[in-house]
Design a binder for these strands. Structure first.
Lengths: 205, 205
DNA sequence: AAATACGGCTAATTTGAATTAGCCGAACAA
DNA sequence: TTGTTCGGCTAATTCAAATTAGCCGTATTT
């Protein structure tokens, strides 16, 4: 990987562990294997590194969103996929979502960084809300909506049902971010949550 | 209020808005209405101010926990209180908990500060988890357990039921911390959540 | 009333971290 | 090959923020 990219990568790691203000330009440089002044050949300032991370993140997420829409925009067709969905499928859905967010390295670090920096300015707060609140909710709302369409879930309020599906996932995610040693237990809880969710909302009693 | 206490108070406000590292001793002093060097008549260092905040917080929470136990330890007696609990009571319970955490000034500021600082060291992470994850869960688990005992809620897994009750509350709380303009909407969602919770778990179908 | 403690101030001092200046060798382009 | 760019380095420089020194008035104690 070229140096410019490595700088972003190491900076993100450090920012996610200690927060922007507690990371020194020298720390980043050291990790990359160069001296602090050399960083300035690639970025104008420490702030510029942070901004570049945010930019790249936006790029990645847009990309990802686009990819999702390709499979997600045609609800009528996709609903068929869910026509014979079982509890196992639902479990898979939740687990996949959870593990992706939890273990995908870029996601994990970025989420932690945003958690730390979210109160610095409104833009970051909005980004956090978009990435970890609104987008997952609307995406999963769409999926669960289709499953309900297919007659496998019963509710008169998809939004609240989706909240009931996602809030515990979010909650467990924040626990694991803070303390990875809880992952195993969180995964068990996740399974129980989804099974119970299915019992509560599933049509096939 | 005496200066020593005012320093803690203003420091907490600032730390909760910008995080420890982005607050200067001079900022705190200015708010208190004195000059930076005068702060050192009260605290040995900037760090000591932070530590004092944590200490006071621990004191407050222990106090609060003690107060709760007085009413909470005798489950058999308290269960009677819930014998004729209605959806309205349940709504009140959730709303009270939510609003207390959301608006109690000390709580709000402390929670935001911990959110920012949680990844700095394990002690802070553990404190966060205790205050906003484990304690609420066990407290509400106790209450809901009693309500279930009284025959008003039906479940074979109180823990998951409690997760289903609390996770959305936690989720909404973090949204409001980030963006207070969402409070109104969050309160509506909270109500819908609890009503739906009651529909899902309530015995009196 | 003298002595002392308290809590404020201004003026240093110290420190440490970001950034700039300017050099230099390797690669590559003309 | 000669020049130019790239990306590294060391040695300043700058600047801001924490902390210390030392003064001083007020209030409290003895």
């Amino acid at each position: 990987m070229d140096t410019k990219q490595r700088i972003l990568d190491e900076a993100l790691t450090l920012f996610s562990e200690k927060g922007y203000a507690n990371v020194f330009v020298g720390d980043i440089a050291e990790r990359v294997g160069i001296k602090a002044p050399s960083l300035y050949k690639h970025y104008k300032s420490k702030r510029a590194i942070f901004d570049a991370i945010i930019e790249e993140m936006n790029r990645r997420f847009e990309e990802q969103a686009k990819a999702m829409n390709i499979n997600g925009s045609n609800a009528a067709a996709d609903a068929k996929v869910y026509e014979n969905m079982s509890e196992e499928h639902l479990l898979g859905l939740g687990r996949q979502f959870f593990l992706y967010f939890l273990h995908d390295d870029y996601n994990k670090r970025f989420r932690k960084m945003l958690t730390i920096e979210q109160f610095h300015d409104k833009e970051l707060a909005d980004l956090y809300t978009k990435l970890y609140v609104d987008d997952p909710l609307s995406y999963q709302g769409m999926l669960l909506g289709m499953v309900a369409q297919a007659g496998l879930l019963k509710t008169d309020n998809v939004e609240i049902m989706t909240l009931h599906f996602y809030a515990p996932i979010y909650y467990l995610l924040t626990i694991c971010d803070r303390d990875p040693s809880r992952e195993e237990q969180a995964l068990k809880t996740l399974d129980e949550h989804i099974r119970q969710f299915n019992r509560l909302y599933g049509r096939t009693k």
